[in-house]
């Protein structure tokens, strides 16, 4: 069952690579949150109530509901639904991105497979690395900062997957702190994103290139 989730997760990466609609991005990030919740439930062998609540809060509520909701509101307020760039151009770019995604996933798989580490869950690890790299790549090829934020969330999801893949056992307090940090960083980012929407006419990064040498 968890393998299915991972495959769907990787599929969302392809979709993200191809998508030209902000709405799609938001939907996909929500779906990823739900998938992560599923994976986490399956992987959690000893069910601790506090832990369960944390996982629930982090994936289902935070990643699956709150963040997509926030992003919806922002995109609506700033009247962005379709990316500004020329559609055909985006298609071509998207096609390249698909090939790159495939390559990244393939290489990640090869890399994780070669590690031969007994404690490593190869499927999650592959997905995690692919998500991280793809997240950065999404940021580099897009100009819209909402998509930047979403790509950041993709990286976050990758990290979450990796934490599962390595069976990390951080102390509870640390886990909570990390959760809080990520949560608040996204919040802060959305707040500033909103500000940018007010200050500038649109939320393309072309506006944000004043600071350079």
């Amino acid at each position: 069952m968890s393998s299915l989730f991972v495959i769907i997760f990787l599929g969302t990466l392809f979709y993200l690579a191809l998508s030209v609609n902000v709405k799609n991005y938001i939907n996909l990030i929500g779906i990823q949150g739900l998938l992560l919740f599923g994976i986490a439930i399956f992987e959690l062998h000893e069910l601790n109530v506090v832990h369960l609540i944390l996982i629930l809060a982090e994936t289902l509520i935070f990643k699956g509901i709150i963040v997509p909701g926030l992003l919806y509101r922002i995109s609506k307020r700033n009247k962005i639904s379709v990316l500004k760039n020329n559609k055909t151009h985006r298609k071509a770019k998207g096609f390249n991105m698909v090939i790159i995604t495939a390559l990244v996933i393939g290489l990640s798989f090869v890399f994780s497979h070669n590690q031969q580490d007994a404690h490593l869950e190869i499927q999650y690890f592959t997905a995690a690395i692919s998500a991280m790299i793809m997240g950065i790549l999404f940021i580099t090829v897009n100009k819209n900062i909402i998509i930047h934020l979403i790509s950041f969330l993709v990286i976050e999801n990758g990290i979450f997957l990796m934490a599962i893949a390595v069976g990390s056992n951080m102390p509870m307090l640390v886990n909570a702190a990390i959760l809080l940090d990520i949560f608040s960083s996204v919040l802060v980012l959305t707040v500033f994103l909103n500000r940018i929407g007010q200050f500038f006419q649109d939320v393309e990064t072309d506006q944000l290139t004043e600071l350079k040498d």
Binding site: F152, V188, L189, R195, E210, L211
Partner: peptide
Amino acid sequence: DKLALEAVWKYVFVCSVSITL
């Protein structure tokens, strides 16, 4: 102001990515 906003956006964003790394 605008420049401060730009700086802070970049700072928080890149820091967030880097911190995940």
